[in-house]
């Protein structure tokens, strides 16, 4: 990497108000705790370790992003947190209780659109509530509030195929939040959206997060997205997937689009992107991000 034209501050230096914020967060209870998590896949060529000794904790109302190249075990981690796959060893604790199998206490938003195409927006959001035993009337009124919150009030009776990609993801967020999950786990939720929509969705997500008491674990391969959204950035390395660094994001909140160009933002972005030695395979979206030099820009 060429020498930076711009003198970037150290990403570890926290402004006093940011440091105070992290102090406050560290006093909050731990929502999600992962201890010595390992995942080994049995393949034809023998066992392959996807995740190695991963440990971290996420505190209440914290916004944590997970970033890393392909093969770093992001998806594996997500599937184990969701309860869709089982870990080989280690523990996943939610509110101190071990997680087993999928459940409504962890709200999921996937990259692929997973709205039920046969249900209207309203019915999609009502799905988890009805399954959770709420009466139809209660489920409906709660669902409508969530739909209002994500700004789709006028689309309550539309079917998913009438919505744009960004709208679908808003509904998916509403559907996950309606269950009042302890943590919202988002697996590259905006990865399939165009750049403009993605920006809108990011600020929209921050708005929701500020209004709702929810902890968010957000997987992405977009450095800018990670820097813009999160309190802390978990950087994973690949082969096998392991924790490389937990960056405390020094960019003060509330954040604006202009901050994406501030030196402190760029220093985090550079750090988050730079700690990774170039992996053997990069995700298609990640290559473009990695190619432009954050220091030189």
């Amino acid at each position: 990497m060429s020498a930076s034209v711009l003198e970037l501050p150290d990403y570890r230096e926290l402004a006093p108000e940011v440091a105070a914020r992290f102090d406050k967060i560290s006093e909050r209870p731990v929502i999600l705790e992962v201890r010595n998590l390992n995942k080994v896949f049995e393949s034809a060529e023998g066992p392959r370790q996807a995740l190695k000794e991963l440990s971290f904790e996420v505190r209440r109302r914290e916004f944590v992003t997970v970033i890393g190249p392909s093969g770093c075990g992001k998806s594996t981690l997500i599937r184990m947190l969701a309860g869709l796959d089982e870990q080989s060893s280690g523990q996943i604790l939610l509110d101190g209780r071990e997680v087993s199998g999928p459940g409504p206490d962890r709200g999921m938003v996937f990259q692929g659109y997973t709205l039920f195409p046969w249900l209207t927006v309203k019915k999609n959001v009502m799905f988890g509530l009805e399954i959770g035993g709420h009466s139809e009337a209660v489920a409906e009124s709660e669902a409508l509030q969530w739909i209002e919150m994500v700004g789709l009030g006028s689309f309550a009776n539309a079917y998913p195929n009438q919505l744009s990609g960004g709208m679908k993801q808003r509904v998916a967020i509403a559907r996950a939040l309606a269950n009042k999950p302890r943590i919202l786990i988002m697996d590259e939720p905006f990865g399939a959206l165009d750049a403009q929509t993605r920006c809108q969705m990011q600020s929209h997500l921050i708005q929701i997060w500020r209004q709702v008491d929810v902890t968010i674990l957000f997987i992405t391969h977009d450095l800018e997205e990670a820097c813009y959204l999160s309190d802390r950035i978990m950087v994973l390395g690949s082969n096998p997937g392991h924790l490389m660094e937990f960056i405390r994001n020094p960019v003060p909140r509330p954040r604006s689009d202009e901050q994406c160009l501030s030196p402190v933002f760029l220093s985090v972005k550079k750090k988050a992107g730079g700690v990774d030695p170039p992996g053997p395979i990069l995700e298609p979206g990640a290559t473009a991000e990695d190619s432009h030099d954050p220091g030189g820009g």
């Binding site: 999921m108 039920f116 195409p117 399954i131 559907r175």
Partner: peptide, 21 residues
């Protein structure tokens, strides 16, 4: 999988997801 993460039981998966889907 999405339905599972919303808390659907096996029975609910069959009648609310597999069949309508």
């Amino acid at each position: 999988e999405a339905a599972q993460t919303l808390g659907a039981s096996r029975r609910q998966l069959i009648f609310r997801v597999i069949i309508p889907g």
